[in-house]
Amino acid sequence: ALSHAPASAPSNPSHFMKGAIIQLATGELKRVEDLQTQDFVRSAEVSGGLKIDSSMVVDIRASQQKPGLVSLHFTVGEQQSKVTIDVPPEHPFFVFGQGWSSCSPERTAQLYDLACHPLQVGDVCVSITLQQQP
């Protein structure tokens, strides 16, 4: 039996665990490690309310406010908006054409058993935002 897990993420989000079942907007089910860029793009198209943005990593540094976390600086979408988020180094991001990537692939593998590339400045990550209503 399949049960729909809440989207909100606990401290160690289990949806990044290797083998986790992900439901795309098309209804298709895929394992997290098998996802491709096109799966996200297609799901955003089908969902109607969400839009995929290209978010380029422009800076990675240790977080000043929260020890142990890293501050990721992005330029987001066509407007190149500046956005900064603080995340654990093992948090995976999906990079266009590359796949799962994180600031600490070793820790990501330990925690989630999910193979990751090193996340680097210049990588373009998949992010989402609300579709602008006309």
């Binding site: 989207a7 289990s14 990044f16 992900i22 978010s55 407007q79 900064t84 999906f94 990550c125």
Partner: peptide
């Protein structure tokens, strides 16, 4: 009498960050 084990299914959008401009410092 086997108890069915439910497998959690996560929505696709829970995997990617929601980056809206208002989040910048």
């Amino acid at each position: 009498n086997v108890e069915p084990r439910s497998v959690p299914v996560f929505p696709w959008h829970s995997l990617v960050p929601f980056l809206a401009p208002t989040q910048s410092d």
